[in-house]
Amino acid sequence: MDHEVTSRPSFALLTVSLDRGEAVRAEAGAMVSHDPGVDIETNATGGFLKSLRRAVGGESFFQNTFTATEGGDVQFAPPLPGDIEHLELRGETVYVQSGSYLAGDANLDVDTDFGGARTFLGGEGLFLLRVAGDGPLFVSSYGAIEAIDLDDRDSFVVDTGHVVAFEETADFTVRRVGGLRSTLTSGEGLVCEFTGSGTVWLQSRSQDAFLSWLIPKLPTRSSSSST
């Protein structure tokens, strides 16, 4: 399975070239195009992506599996402007923020890690996926992606809204920034403190921060109807 990422870092586009019999699994809505020699199968998921959101908010989720019958290309793109990073797993495990999962080898085991998801469930809407096995994994970001090597640090603190993925070898704890008053006045919410070894991948922009900036500027229904 070959791949190429173009138009990076702001509007990255992933092209996966499949030989006959190879398959790639992607989040619904991520496909841009595919060759005629590639079949698509859509399945509803239970414990896969966004299962917690589905349980809490009534959302449904489907995944698409693209299998090459004759060989061909499939193109994917994330919903937000940003970059795409390729992680090659060789019996390893990484945790991915659910919104950053784009696509991966169909043989990868992708499931919600409920322990981690409960830890992050604090109003910032960050749910973790546990991805394990052998094969390529593609994660996306809002903004640019930066890899941080924990081996060079005693600890590393990052806002949860900027977490893309991290290796299983990294230990983490989630806490609020200061007390309740400082949380409300600083504009910050939850942070994740990483220790141990491995790599943490960050995104340079936060969806939550963007929504916090955008929503107050949207016209209300009453003001829209009066104009």
Rank of each mutant, 00 (worst) to 15 (best):
D73Q: 07
H86W: 08
Q203R: 12
F156K: 01
A23D: 00
Y101N: 03
Q207L: 15
E92I: 03
T6V: 09
W213F: 12
D208M: 14
L184Y: 08
M31V: 04
L214G: 08
Q203A: 08
V200K: 00
T42S: 12
C192F: 06
A23M: 01
L87P: 02
R130M: 14
L52T: 14
F66S: 02
V16T: 02
E167M: 06
G143C: 10
A68N: 00
E88V: 06
Q207S: 11
L202Y: 06
T15W: 01
Y95R: 03
R205E: 15
D35E: 10
A44M: 04
S182T: 15
F194T: 03
Q203P: 07
S224Q: 14
N64M: 06
T69G: 13
L80C: 03
F210S: 07
L14F: 04
L214I: 08
L121S: 09
P78I: 14
C192R: 05
V74M: 03
V96E: 05
A209P: 02
Q207R: 15
F120S: 04
L87C: 03
Q203D: 11
F210A: 07
D171F: 11
H86L: 12
S186P: 12
F62C: 07
V164D: 01
D208Y: 08
M31T: 02
E27K: 02
G116D: 07
R90P: 03
L87G: 01
R8I: 08
D83L: 04
L184C: 08
R90G: 12
G179D: 13
A170K: 12
P9M: 15
R25P: 00
L180V: 11
L137S: 10
N107K: 08
F194Y: 10
P36W: 09
P136L: 02
T93S: 13
R90Q: 10
G179W: 09
V16Y: 02
S197N: 14
D113W: 09
E188L: 10
S7Y: 14
G71W: 14
Q203L: 10
E146R: 15
S140W: 01
Q75L: 04
F156P: 01
D151E: 15
F120E: 03
E22Y: 05
R20C: 10
